[in-house]
Computed example of a mutant assay.
Amino acid sequence: MVSQPLISVIVPAKDQAPFIRDSMTSLTRQFEDSAAVEVIVVDDGSTDGTGELASAFTRRLPGLKIIRNETPVGLATARNQGLDSATGRYITYLDGDDWLAPGHLAHVLDSMSTLDVDFVRLDHVRVTRGNRVQHYAPQARRGVPLDPRNDIAPPTKSTMIDYAFAWAGVYSRRMADAGLLRFPDGLFTAEDRPWIWRLHLQAKSYAVVNSPGILYRRGVTTSLTQIVDMRQLDFLPAYAQVFSLVESDRDAELYWPKAARQFVAILAHHLNRASQMPADVAASLRSRAGGVLQLIPDAIRARTLAELDAKRLQSLRTIVATSGRSTR
């Protein structure tokens, strides 16, 4: 038996009754000694008995903790609640509708201990209506320590800063102690964007390692990616925070193009969906987007817009004109 958990797994879950048992069962299959893992389920205002279903695993997971919120506080704050309760030497996240292959965490921690890095990042399998597709982290070099700042640019290619899934990694306790694992409180979506930027800008080392597998369930009807309401617009304050991080960095000129291109691409995506949004959500998107766009330095913004493809540029034309800039 171990006195301190080897790893804390933070599981935010809201109305995940159909899936939470799969998640919890997978966590019982990670180590020979079940006391090595501390599982912290944050039941974020569920009305379907999610917390009670998770509690049934107490005997199989002796380190299990259940935190209950009477009303939902959102994914970011729920993860922070779990982080505040975590005591493990390492920390990771698992969404309440996902699960891990047997021995996944034990394998990853062996690699992490050998490499002695601040955090590791992992590939994942997307499961959509039973179909499984492997998705790889953008960094091809595996099993070697890397500088996380070197894997932010270039703006025109997919890099590790685009691979923002918090659950696709394991993090040293020292990252939590340094405040690098906290999410922006109150955000329901896009909370991982400022989080991944802070991690890559301020951590000292990381690695990408192969692992038995994270299984990520797609297309769940209760997922916020499937629900269109004001919470979808959290990417606007999220990128305001990203821009603040970049602006204060010693190499801001190097990273601004990537941050700007990310935001413009996501903004164009949401504007293309505006016709599917409730009228008040679409109006709020159009009225607020220009202000965030203006946070990008003029030269960077102009160059980013000039490099856009025609479809995205057309989506942004009204926003740019409203914010006082022409796309011509």
Rank of each mutant, 00 (worst) to 15 (best):
Y163C: 05
A35I: 10
L64G: 04
R288D: 00
G88Q: 06
A166H: 04
S172P: 01
Y171D: 04
A17N: 09
V246P: 02
D118L: 09
R286K: 08
A238V: 09
R21V: 00
R312T: 06
Y136C: 10
T322C: 06
D298R: 15
R325L: 14
Q139C: 14
T28A: 03
P148L: 03
A168M: 11
V108C: 10
A289N: 04
P297E: 02
Q226F: 09
A54F: 08
G324I: 07
I152N: 02
S113W: 03
R173W: 12
Q4G: 01
E247M: 08
V41D: 03
L181E: 11
V264H: 05
A268R: 15
G96W: 00
G63A: 00
M230S: 12
P148C: 08
A140K: 13
T47S: 15
L245R: 05
A86D: 09
A310F: 08
F183V: 04
R141T: 05
A299Y: 01
A17T: 11
V144T: 10
G45H: 07
T189S: 12
Q30K: 03
G63F: 13
M1R: 12
H200T: 14
A203P: 01
A168K: 06
T156R: 10
M1H: 13
R217F: 13
Q134C: 07
Q202D: 14
A13F: 09
R288W: 09
A176T: 08
D192Q: 14
F31A: 03
A54H: 05
T50S: 05
K14V: 05
V73G: 08
E307I: 01
P18S: 11
L105V: 05
K204E: 06
T28K: 02
R173P: 00
A56K: 11
Q241I: 14
L6D: 12
A166E: 05
I266H: 14
S55F: 01
N80R: 09
A78P: 00
L236P: 06
S26Q: 05
V208I: 13
S205T: 13
S26E: 13
A140T: 09
D234Y: 09
I7W: 15
P12N: 14
